[in-house]
Design a binder for these strands. Sequence first.
DNA 1: AACAAATATGTAGTCATTACAATTTATAAT
DNA 2: ATTATAAATTGTAATGACTACATATTTGTT
Lengths: 134, 134
Amino acid sequence: MKSNTTEYLKQHRVKPSFQRIKIFDYLITKKNHPTADIIYKELVNEIPTLSKTTVYNTLKLFVEKEITQIINIEDNETRFDADISTHGHFKCLNCNTIYDFSFDDKNINIFDIEGFDKIQTHLYIKGICKTCKN
Amino acid sequence: MKSNTTEYLKQHRVKPSFQRIKIFDYLITKKNHPTADIIYKELVNEIPTLSKTTVYNTLKLFVEKEITQIINIEDNETRFDADISTHGHFKCLNCNTIYDFSFDDKNINIFDIEGFDKIQTHLYIKGICKTCKN
DNA sequence: AACAAATATGTAGTCATTACAATTTATAAT
DNA sequence: ATTATAAATTGTAATGACTACATATTTGTT
Ligand SMILES: [Mn+2]
Ligand SMILES: [Mn+2]
Ligand SMILES: [Zn+2]
Ligand SMILES: [Zn+2]
């Protein structure tokens, strides 16, 4: 039986290799906005022959095929998200957790760039999460 | 006669050295959201003894003292902005220009993170600018 | 002037990412 | 099934942004 991921990758013109399926499954189930290194360190336990280059190559491919987005909330680390719906990211400056949130795209009044073609929107908020406040 | 920058730096507990004034003036007059390297390459013409380390140190100091903000619109480059007012950034994927825009902070409906303390908000939009469309 | 503190500089090192060549695996043809 | 060809993975070396740190210079104070 083929997994959902296999079909999903095929639909987006990504050949579903063993490593690619594992990496995509990791992203979609964990939803933790990991760095390439975090993905590698976790998956190398399951796949001892895994190469870090493969993780980088695969993530780059996913981004090209638009099934993964890059999260640049912090300048010293590139993070990845297989949820490509338009949603915002909140990083807690205390516990470093990155939370998803939704926002009303239409409701933002944007000035000064009328007539520009807007392709991607990224909304990042930093602060202290509810858990850390208590 | 002391420059405006000198006074501004003092007010924000930054000792106004020659290099710091030059770097801050560069940011505030050019408004080009440069990388550390761009600042260095431009200013080293005026100040031949300038060190790239000084540029990095100075920018880090400016960020600490909250007179400069970091722009993470692209993952391979850290950019800087001496305009610390809340405003958005639009990057044209064709000409790579980064445009400022204003947005109505209050008007964004944000869900799922009620009760979180929001300290910084960054809104990044990528697309094609009006000039490149024509 | 002499001293101490702050700042700037240059070099060496770190770390995330990429380039590239060599293996391995998958696909197609015979 | 065997061979040939293409695609994907791997390991290593290189790159480049940034930082650590020791030294030199500047600034301010006695
Ligand atoms: Mn997300
Ligand atoms: Mn700006
Ligand atoms: Zn927290
Ligand atoms: Zn443009």
